[in-house]
Design a protein around this nucleic acid. Sequence first.
DNA 1: GCCGTTTTCGGCCCGACTGTTTTCAGTCG
Length: 571
Amino acid sequence: MQNRQVAAIFNELADLLEIEGENPFKVRAYRNAARTIEGLGDALEDMIDRGEDLTKLPGIGEDLAEKIVEIVRTGKLSKLEEVRKEVPDSLRALLSIEGLGPKRVKTLWETLHITDPDTLKKAAEEHKIRELPGFGPKTEENILKGMHLLKQEGIRFLFAEAEAYAIDLKAFLQKAPGLHTVEVAGSFRRRKETVGDLDILCTAAEPQKVINYFIAYDKVVKVISAGSTRSTVILQNALQVDLRVVEQKSYGAALQYFTGSKSHSIALRKIAVDMGLKINEYGVFRGDKVIAGKTEEEVYASIGLRYIEPELRENRGEIEAARDDTLPRLVTLEDIRGDLHMHTTYSDGLDTIEAMVQKAISLNYDYIAVTDHSATLAVVKGLDTKKAAAYLEEIEKLNSRYEEIHIFKGMEVDILEEGKPAMDDAVLDKLDIALGAVHANFKLSGKEQTKRVLKAIRNPHIKGIAHPTGRLIGKREPLDLDMDEIYKAIREEGKFLEINAQPERLDLNDILIREAKEAGVMLAVNTDAHAAGQLEYMRYGINQARRGWLEKGDLINTLPLGKLLQVIGKG
DNA sequence: GCCGTTTTCGGCCCGACTGTTTTCAGTCG
């Protein structure tokens, strides 16, 4: 039973209870618990096995702790089974229709016996809905329009995809009449690996003019709302954009509010309440008097906190750290001295080794590792023993030609099912950096998979593990690895784990990165570039590293060349 | 259902927009 499944059960229960009309604070308690569980570094199952006290977790009390144990032990929750008998589970689907919340869904169910999207559609088409109290023709129409958006519900965009749209939109908004500033906030500003919508904050003297300009953007296909200070639209690509316009004096408070995360902001507001203050998007107030709001620094300072970087704002301990002045000094792109994972025409890359070298020089790197694939069934275009000889020779040649950069002889070596590297020792002996990686047999049991990777880590030829969990965001689940065992082995062997910067990998994820750091594990952010231009993906990996609380000293590729040589045993 | 250097009971973040109303409930972020 995975944490995500436990969280899903609580979310489902919350939805059904809310439709039932249960105390909204009780409903919120279930949702808060689900959020806490989703953000957990450890598997609940392991925590229970170790006898840890779950009520220590935020938002988990006696009752919910018991329910968690029940779910983990039995795979289900009797309370949910009971509620399902009272409220049809299919009603949940209706909640995802724009404009339908628990109250209206309950009304539809009790009066017209609507239980799912199909019966809802029929009732709307027969104009039965407009007759209900609290409903009208407009609502009925909106329900019908919202029906075909139902399927697209819940899609999230990779950060890198959202970035492209955000850049376009920002450039467009910069030309809005009377605009002062425009900033993309929300999960985009927090640099989450996926982004559900874009939240954009503008400051302008006349907000209405900016709103009017915004909804005329040529990629807008639907205007959901457009008031005097905020608006929500849907773009062609189904991306939702929320725009908020405030005055300059509220910029900091509004940026904080619009950046979130929701639970981070709620926690701040609670602190303010305890101090007799109130925080909203216009400022920090004592009574009617504004005491802060122009900048985010001011807002945090007003409740006794240091400024918190957006990447940390997830209510996972950053607020306590800000109070104690123990926040990390997050690593930056400028700290990176080199890239230790990339591919060339020697395997499945698009550019030559020399093209990669030249691009790396333009990025001011001190070193790179060229790490083409070893050939296996999974990676057919890779290096065999014979091809490897030419490959290594060319790296050496380029190394003497380009004095301004050091080129490591590397290879991304497939870890076979038994944990052995897919390359002869004779070749491995000649390498500076061999990265072990899993590219096939993803379905092994957690125990076997862990054993397989541990064996690779203990292999003296392997220096690091590339994209350790093998996940592809939205496409492939991570390997079922015992990460604590992995961290232990990596630490003992003096090896490193990679943070892979490919937009759909970002592997390790933020939570595992932070765990790894706490376990004393060395890490490296690498691009796994398959073309020279992709060396610029480093920034995505840095985003992830920052979300994992990493500082410069946690990454080996911030080290100067001499120090790095020592770390990989070549100094 | 959670939580507590004010509290073990009585609070629980805060405001904008829409559509339905005729002063506001429901929804959303």
